[in-house]
Design a protein around this nucleic acid. Structure first.
Length: 590
RNA sequence: GGUCCCGUGGUGCAGUUUGGAGUGCACGCCGGCCUGUCAAGCCGGAGGUCGCGGGUUCAAAUCCCGUCGGGACCGCCA
């Protein structure tokens, strides 16, 4: 159902001359056979009934001589003649609404129990029930459309990557566990009891090996698995476009991915997206309090640290003070403000200061601690107008941005179907995201990320906070506040790699143990290379107007990682454990 | 590891704040009527361990504790 009012091009077969949703005025007079499910039945006495027959392409009305033995979701084959509907009974809401199938013979291919929930999609059905009967849920127009959008997007991505010279290469699912990153799913080895494979969090290392192997431009529609808590935009298993190219710059990678994403968007919506802007990580954090800014709305963060540089108000004696101005938000109730304050605290702020901007004063529980000059300057800095609400957080730069960023989403985030598609690249990520308690920097991406060329010299002799200023050649693609994916220029030179490992506190032996095969490969002639990966489930969900990637996955898991349809996860037979050399711990200590 | 919301015939809800007979609504289902409907219409009917366990009470869908399931989020996701 790519475009609901244009017929599909699905081929006929001997049993089925046409798909239900394809019938049009041009078919009038033709003898046809359609196959599908009884979507609805409207009886008008013993000798007239209307049967809506549904298949992947849509619905067509069949006029039958009595339908007493035909029930919802029976599988039928209907033969008859296409005819125009009588004057005045056309249904413009239906793609097939100008015609109907008359003189029908109905063959029941399968009877069916009543469906466990309605398929009309007018109500939200409990997730367990939908997933337990996913085979029924998939018949709904919503799921059929979403699967079609997904297939169209993936097809377009394959085409775009192939057109740009990328070679599709498959990489293994059973690999060695690496200690970095997300929690691995592990698979016990039968042939080597006590040893384990891991399922890939991504094909990262293999695609770099492909570069050493001269593949030059690699891509894969890759399944990735991470044993971390599930969310609306996260499943255990998800699908990425994974890509890597040799002898290219960051800008060239961005262009490749822009082309692939653009093709996917066009395939799904019919329109090519506008150019993707780019924003530095620093600016994204400063203005939106997030490294995945939702650019569909304003409510930007305003830095007011300087306003309170010499304040007597203890709560504002902080490295960073920022504000959000909520236009006409001054009428927020006290309970709403208390709720926002609670949230801010849960998100890590010490508190939240609110101020109502009135004609000649600012009212706030803390106004009495602030000077008239400070209040006037705050008003000027935030461009506040009468009736507005100001929300302020004072803390470290990072905490202030983070909390106000979450608050901004809470206050202004539009529904997924509103505001269009606002893509942006986020560039110039820091090489290190933080310094751990033992003084070691923590990599923001992965340890093979190339430092920014202008910042490499900063690595010399740098320690502690100086390192946090070092930028990397890594980049994220963001759509409407969702991180679609990320990539980087990789380190291909042993000397730079050794310096990074040194900074990260990874010894030569340790590096060899963890990534030895990659480092070994690099000794045999590694081209400069760079790559990217983005989440296809997330892209398709947003294109389909869905808030949750479950809606674009045929058989997803619940938030607790269960599959109500198959019962996974479940126990295995003792003999299986025995064969694998495994013994279970008692539940209380597991 | 944590916070919040939800759980009532097959489905979606109301009822829970303020305890008093399983009370109600819409859809679906079953039967009947009905020859131009398309969320068909009209009449009738069936269908319940109020997620589960414990507690308080003369009395619990309702209050309390625990637990299970679903959802949203923080942490986590290099």
């Amino acid at each position: 159902m790519t475009a609901p009012h244009s017929p599909s091009t699905l081929p006929p077969s001997p049993a089925r001359t046409h798909y239900a949703g394809d019938l049009r005025a041009e078919h009038v007079g033709q003898a046809v056979a359609v196959c599908g499910w009884v979507a609805r039945r409207r009886e008008h006495g013993e000798h007239l009934a209307f049967l809506d027959v549904r298949d992947r392409t849509g619905l067509v009305q069949c006029v039958v001589d009595g339908a007493h033995d035909l029930r919802s979701e029976y599988v039928v084959r209907v033969t008859g003649t296409v005819r125009p509907r009588p004057e005045g009974t056309e249904n413009p809401a239906l793609a097939t609404g100008a015609v109907e199938v008359g003189d029908c013979e109905v063959e029941v291919l399968s009877v069916a129990e009543p469906p466990p929930f309605p398929l009309e999609g007018r109500v939200e059905v409990d997730e367990t029930i939908r997933l337990r009967h996913r085979y029924v849920d998939l018949r709904s127009e919503r799921m059929q459309r979403n699967l079609a959008v997904r297939a169209a997007a993936i097809g377009a991505i394959r085409g775009a990557m192939a057109d740009q010279g990328f070679l599709e290469v498959e990489t293994p699912l059973l690999i060695a566990s690496t200690p970095e990153g997300a929690r691995d799913f592990v698979v016990p080895s039968r042939q080597s009891p006590g040893e384990f494979y891991a399922l890939p969090q991504s094909p990262q290392l293999f695609k770099q090996l492909c570069m050493v192997g001269g593949v030059d431009r690699y891509y894969q529609i890759a399944r990735c698995l991470r044993d971390e808590d599930l969310r609306a935009d996260r499943q255990f298993e998800f699908t990425q476009l994974d890509a890597e190219a040799s002898f290219v710059t960051q800008d060239e990678v961005l262009a490749f991915i822009t082309e692939a994403v653009g093709a996917a968007v066009e395939a799904a919506t019919g329109e090519r997206p506008g150019s993707f802007g780019a924003i530095s990580w620093r600016e994204a954090m400063d203005r939106f309090g997030s490294d995945k800014p939702d650019l569909r709305f304003g409510l930007e963060l305003v830095d007011v640290t300087e306003v309170f540089a010499a304040t007597g108000f203890n709560a504002f004696k902080a490295p960073c003070v920022k504000a959000i101005r909520v236009p006409d938000g001054g009428d927020a109730t006290r309970s709403r403000l208390d709720d926002l304050t609670d949230r801010a605290k849960r998100w890590g702020a010490k508190g939240l200061v609110w101020m109502r901007v009135e004609a000649d004063e600012i009212t706030s529980p803390v106004a009495k601690f602030l000077s008239a000059e400070e209040l006037a300057e705050l008003r000027r800095a935030t461009e506040a107008e009468t009736g507005d609400l100001l929300l302020l957080v004072a803390d470290s730069w990072h905490t202030t941005c983070h909390v106000l960023g979450l608050l901004r989403l809470e206050l202004g985030r539009p529904p997924v179907t509103e505001g269009g598609f606002h893509f942006t690249w986020v560039v110039d990520f820091p090489l290190f995201e933080s310094i751990s308690d033992d003084g070691q920097p923590v990599p923001a991406h992965h340890p093979f990320t190339m430092p920014h060329p202008d910042d490499i010299e900063l690595l010399d002799g740098a320690t502690g906070d100086d390192l946090l200023a070092v930028r990397s050649q890594s980049y994220d693609l963001v759509l409407n506040g969702w991180e679609l994916g990320s990539g980087s220029v990789r380190i291909h030179r042993a000397d730079i790699q050794q310096r990074i490992f040194g900074l990260l506190g990874i010894s030569e032996d340790e590096a060899q143990a963890k990534f030895g095969f990659l480092l070994d490969a690099f000794r045999y002639g590694a081209p400069p290379h760079a790559g990217f990966a983005f989440g296809i489930d997330r892209l398709v969900a947003l294109l389909a107007g869905e808030e949750n990637i479950r809606e674009v996955i045929a058989f997803p898991k619940t938030q607790s990682g269960a599959d109500p349809l198959t019962g996974a996860p479940g126990p295995v037979a003792p003999a299986q454990l025995e064969e694998l050399g495994l013994r279970l711990l008692p539940r209380s200590t597991a």
